[in-house]
Design a protein around this nucleic acid. Structure first.
Lengths: 230, 230
DNA sequence: GCATATTTGTCCGTATGTATA
DNA sequence: CTATACATACGGACAAATATG
């Protein structure tokens, strides 16, 4: 009878809980940089904006905290996480272990590779249009689709979380062109190796890719820190 | 001020939230089989037993739902998950990818291997005492310690979740001796390979181990299903 | 350093919707 | 079909911690 908020369709769609939908909204805003790393998410502000109760919002917070997108400081509130250098190393350790193992043993039928090819096409379009935001999205999608080859829900979900965190890292860096542009060609090389059914080569190429990306991110983190300390 | 429940120390230890501690309690009970797969967790019953409010308990439920230990049926309540055959396949897919990749590249200094050796020793003690519960715990600890070699928080946490789910599978099977006993010797072989710094061999042994275990579990699931349908 | 205002942590009561007997 | 039981989500309350002046 009330619920005049953005979520009034609850009764109709009723599939998912309100907290989950609020979580989706917040996750999207965080990934998009609308809530940048370090930002504080005030309860009252958001409950008003979304028209949900505090209890419901807090459940949504819990969800995102578990995904490491938010951190909870006791009696201070929720903040968008600011990944540090250790996080970068850890995220790339996961990527190296999981992604490389997946591509080495993945099935490589053309139908399965089609979604991956599509992300590369999208990347080329974004590059031509100089849409760096879209280029970054395409790059991330490439990796998401690649781990989907494993056909494992848990691995897919794991990587979705890892890549969401990585978006946070990218926001800290805030230079999508410089970071994503060089990797488009390398994505295509990896796809070619998969097309040939050469998992070992795809593994090798991907490992170097990840190692280079990690090094590049860490170097920039160190520079930033130096600036900040100065 | 009141809170005469089991969590009266809240104000003192204050480190973690009440919901997290409730989650820890429930997780322990589930892993121990006190709440077996399929059991329904009624809100009122548990709020009374632990002396916490519904909101607090629901936050704890959310945590465990995310760990896949509970499932939430909309408008019906929370239940301890009953993993099915697909879950078994998926869990072992994760294990093969992650654990094998880790052991192949893990550092193998004696200090790092010590905790792994300790789990094997504990397994032997359990076997001698015919304590099958302890044998299962030792087996799981072996794998937990092995992935810890990667030195990655996220991988450790991932595997903690996977192994917690696996405990659910074992409870469905409910025959710890038959399942864990044959693997103690194989654990030791893997450790020996690591001691020699032979990651490739450890990988190979572990892969066969996991493949055999998976097959064994799936076969039993199929049998159970046949019995149940009958 | 202190007093005040704001925000969070926790809990309760209630209205509404949904599933089961 | 009705009745009962339960889950969802809201709003309000108060203590405790924090931020502000």
């Amino acid at each position: 009878m009330e619920s005049q908020g953005l979520l009034a369709d609850r009764a109709l769609l009723g599939r998912t809980s309100t907290a989950e939908r609020v979580g989706d909204i917040l996750r999207t805003r965080i990934s998009a940089g609308y809530f940048p790393p370090g930002a504080r998410l005030a309860e009252e502000e958001i409950t008003e904006a979304l028209g949900v109760s505090r209890n419901t919002l807090r459940e949504a917070f819990r969800l995102l905290t578990h995904e490491r997108l938010l951190i909870h400081e006791l009696n201070r509130g929720m903040f968008v996480r600011v990944p540090d250098v250790d996080d970068v190393h850890d995220l790339y350790a996961v990527r190296k272990h999981v992604q490389c193992s997946v591509v080495r043993t993945a099935p490589t039928s053309p139908e399965l590779l089609a979604p991956i090819a599509e992300t590369i096409r999208a990347g080329k379009v974004a590059l031509a249009e100089q849409n760096w935001q879209a280029l970054g999205t395409a790059d991330i999608s490439f990796h998401e689709e690649m781990v989907a080859l494993a056909g494992s829900d848990r691995i897919t979900e794991l990587m979705r979380g890892v890549l969401a965190e990585l978006r946070l890292v990218f926001h800290v860096m805030d230079n999508p062109r410089w970071f994503h542009e060089p990797y488009l060609a390398r994505n295509e090389e990896i796809l070619d190796a998969l097309r040939e059914g050469n998992g070992a080569r795809a593994d090798e190429l991907l490992y170097k890719y990840l190692d280079d990306a990690e090094r590049q991110l860490v170097e920039t983190y160190v520079l930033r820190r130096a600036e900040h300390v100065k």
